[in-house]
Nucleic acid binder design. Sequence first.
DNA 1: CGCCTGATTGATAGTTGTCAAGTTAAGTGG
DNA 2: CCACTTAACTTGACAACTATCAATCAGGCG
Lengths: 249, 249
Amino acid sequence: MTYGSEKIPLHCSKCPLRRLDLFLPFDEEEIKFMESFKSGDMIVEPGTHLFIEGAEAAQLYTVLSGLGIRYKTLENGRRQVVNFVMPGDFLGLQAGVMQKMSHSIEVTTKMRLCVFERSRFYELYKNQPDRGYSLTYLAALEEYFLAEALTTVGQRGALEKVSWGLHRFRIRGEALGLLKNGKVPLPFKQQDLADALGLSLVHTNKTLAKLRSDGIANWQDGELEVKDFQALTKLAMVEDFELPKRPLI
Amino acid sequence: MTYGSEKIPLHCSKCPLRRLDLFLPFDEEEIKFMESFKSGDMIVEPGTHLFIEGAEAAQLYTVLSGLGIRYKTLENGRRQVVNFVMPGDFLGLQAGVMQKMSHSIEVTTKMRLCVFERSRFYELYKNQPDRGYSLTYLAALEEYFLAEALTTVGQRGALEKVSWGLHRFRIRGEALGLLKNGKVPLPFKQQDLADALGLSLVHTNKTLAKLRSDGIANWQDGELEVKDFQALTKLAMVEDFELPKRPLI
DNA sequence: CGCCTGATTGATAGTTGTCAAGTTAAGTGG
DNA sequence: CCACTTAACTTGACAACTATCAATCAGGCG
C-alpha cells in the first residue's frame, strides 16, 4: 500500500454518518459486530484508483467522507461514468460475491474509508443474517439507481439529462448534510457529468450555461447552487422523487 | 389471481434449468430447502404484468421458461427497457428487500414461473446463509448487466448499439440451450429493442436492415440468425465477453 | 512569466429523430 | 370465402439535436 494512507482509528459507534437520517438505524449488537469485522481506516488522495475494472480485490470499503467516480471504459477510449461515489457508499460488493469488479473506481477528493477484508465477506451471511440482508439491500439499491440512470441516458434530452444530474446531486448532497447557504459541494469536472449522461463535453457546457442564464441552477467553482428547485425538478421530470433510506455497512 | 394461471407441480430436483452450464451447481440440501420454500408454479399468458413500477408485491418468482421485459416509463410517455427477462431470472428481488419495484415487468411469451412468498423472504437469510449470499450475487449480477447497458446506451453509436443488443441475445440464448440451426428465438418487437437502446424505432429498423444486408445478422419472424459472429462481436466492441455463471433461486 | 488544465463560445458537420406513406401478415366478421 | 382491420415492419424525405472542430479565456502553479 503506497496510497499515502494513514491510520486513523475511529470506532463505529462514533461514526458521524450514523446520525444522518439517510441511513437506517443500527442496534448495539450490529455496531459491535461491524467494529470487529472492520480491519482499519484509510485515507486516500485524489487520483487514487480503489478498484480497476476486471481486477480482483482483497479489500472492500465503506466511504466515510470524500467523493469519487465509478466508471467503465470502452475499447474506443470512451468512458461511461456509472455513478458518483459519496459518503455511506459501500465499495466492492461485486468483488465480494463475483470474482471481479465490472467497473473502476477513482477517488476525486481526499477520501476517508473504512476497510474490510474480502476473505471474511462470507462471515456476514453466516453469522449476521441482518448484515447479509443489508448487503442485498444495497445491491438492489444500486440496481435501482442504475436503472434510473439508464432511463435518463436512454430517454431524456440533453437539457433534461443535465437537469436530472444536478437534481440528483442536490438531493444526495442535502441528504448527506452538505447543503450550506443553498449550495452543495460538487467538485467534479464537467467532463465527468458529460460522461455520466452520454453527452459531449461541449454540449454539456452549453446546457449548463443555459440553466445558469435561465436562473435555474449554478454550478461553478466546485459548488452547485440550485436557484429554482421546482423548475429543475420539472425539467428533470422527477416530480415525486424521494431518496430511499439505506443501510450502512 | 385471474391471470389464467394453472397449477403444474414440478419438483425442484427435476427443474430442467439445473442441467444448464450457465447455472451454479446446487447441493441436495439446498434443493430440499428451496422445494419447501417454493409456494407453487404458475403459467401466465403474454401481456400479463408481473410487477408494476412503484407497487408492492406479495410474490416473487423464478422464471422457468418464457420471455419478458423489464421497463420503466417516464412522465412524457417514453419507455426505457431496462433488461430482457429470460429463464433462470429471479423476479422481484427489489420488492423483497425494498418496499417496491422500481420497474415494471411484462410477459412477452407464455411464461412458466416458480412462485415464492415475499413474507418468507427473510427466512433465506436466517436459515440458509448460502441462499442469502446467492441473492446478493444475483443483485450484483443485475448491477453488472445494467452498467453494461448504461455504457452501451451512453457511449456507443447506433450500429454498435444494435450489434451489442443482438450479440447479447445470441449469447444468452445460446447459454440457455436455445440455439438451433444457428438461430435463437427472439420474439420481441423492434420497438422493444429500440426502447432498450435509446434509439427511435425507425432508426433501429434501418440499422437492422444494414446488418442484414451486410450479411452479419438476420432478425426476422421472431428468430435471430447471426451469420458473422466475429463481425458482430467487433461492431459491438465486446471482444472478450464471457457470460458469468449465476445462481438459481 | 509561461505552462497546463478546465471552462467557454462560435461555426460547421453528422448522426439520429420525426413525419408520412406503403407493405406484409394475421386476424375478424359478414 | 372474402372484404376489412390492425399490428408490425419498411422506406424515403426532411428536420433537429448533438457532436466535432477550433479558438479563446481564466485560474493555479512552478
